[in-house]
Computed example of a mutant assay.
Amino acid sequence: METTETTVTFESLVRAEFAPAGTYLNTASNGLLPARTVAALHEAALLRAAGRPLTPLFEDVEACRAAYARLAGVPADRVAAGASVAAHTGVIAASLPAGAEVLTAEADFTSVLNPFHVRGDLKVRAVPLERLAESVRPGTALVAVSAAQSADGRVADLAALREAAREHGARTYVDHSQAAGWLPMDAGADDFTATVSFKWLLGPHGAAFLTVPEDFGGLTPVLAGWVAGEAPWDSCYGPVTELARSARRFDLTHALFSYAGLRRSLELIEELGVSAVHAHAVALADRFRAGLADLGHEPVPAPGSAIVSVPGLGSRQPDLSRAGIELSDRAGLLRAAFHLYNTPADVDRLLAALSR
């Protein structure tokens, strides 16, 4: 009985928040905005238009920090609020000494990689994702990887990676942008993690999070502005005299509207529970994988992932979009991403379209 009631609650919450115009299977690019989030964005815009104090919007930032901390499994004082993964990666890259080795996965998402490359004086080594843990060696300073690969949904073996990193004295940096919201997180097990909010966390663009160790892991807040001060409103002029004693010292100037909306999106994720979202999304992905096998197609192996990518079918994306089915073409791969608002009917409609 409990399972039935839980299912009904999950479905009723989702139905109340989402009404996509067609079959939307492109969360790996952009998540849909819940109705409550759209309403909060509207309210924030009206607040600004009326010239009223924006204090509630700053409160939204702190509510988002606390909610994300709960999802990530770390204290809120280890979470910094920013705008992009690339900016967070840049702060980490700036902390490394010249000549340090950074180990990465081949063809990982650019935001996880490029700041290390543009330094010009780091040794960046790329290996296949499946060989990442075994490739950590003495002298490796940092391992940087996405928890789930953007192009094909493969999920990194983070437990093995952490063990190898500890054995060789390396630190770990994990981008959860394609995982947070459907895949349970344990950010406290890594030195650094980052996440954008506009994919599986169902938020607007312009908000991102960074988690750091209690001792800040040797990072210097090179992008810090007034919001990074211990007393932000006393840090508006001249150099910041005292940086925040928490991870807020790594905050970037807040996109207030984005955080106003994101607060409601994170509330929905918490109401549903990541474990329930995970079970729902992966079940749909597995249904799609089984249907592909019946059609004679073999997706990129990514067991346990909510993302399914099929080689050779990327060219079908424009026709599918015209038919009201939204997916992505990534380097010739047709990428379907299943989230809480998707249903078995969405899977079956896609399979029927692919069979024609």
Rank of each mutant, 00 (worst) to 15 (best):
L292W: 03
S321A: 13
A306H: 15
S315P: 00
L334H: 12
S309Y: 04
S315L: 05
A336I: 13
I307W: 13
R316C: 05
G312E: 06
R335T: 10
A331K: 14
D319W: 05
P301R: 09
P318G: 13
L295G: 06
V310Q: 07
D329K: 12
P318T: 15
G291H: 11
P303C: 08
E326D: 15
A337W: 07
G304C: 02
A302N: 12
P311W: 03
A331W: 02
S328V: 00
P303M: 12
Q317A: 14
R322L: 06
I307K: 10
V300D: 00
G312M: 06
G296S: 08
G324L: 01
S315I: 05
V308G: 10
L333M: 02
G324R: 03
P303H: 13
S315Q: 15
A337R: 08
A323W: 01
S328Y: 02
G314H: 12
G296N: 05
S309Q: 00
S315G: 14
E326C: 03
D319T: 09
L320V: 13
L313D: 11
G312A: 05
G324N: 08
G296D: 00
A331F: 05
G332I: 04
G314N: 11
A306G: 10
P318L: 14
G312N: 07
A337V: 07
R316Q: 10
F338G: 12
R330N: 10
L334E: 10
P299H: 12
D294T: 09
E298G: 09
F288R: 05
P299M: 04
R322S: 05
Q317L: 04
L334N: 11
Q317E: 08
P301Q: 10
E298S: 13
G332T: 04
A302T: 06
A323L: 04
G291E: 06
R289H: 02
A336D: 03
S315F: 11
D329G: 14
P299W: 08
L292A: 01
G332F: 02
E298N: 09
A293K: 15
G304I: 02
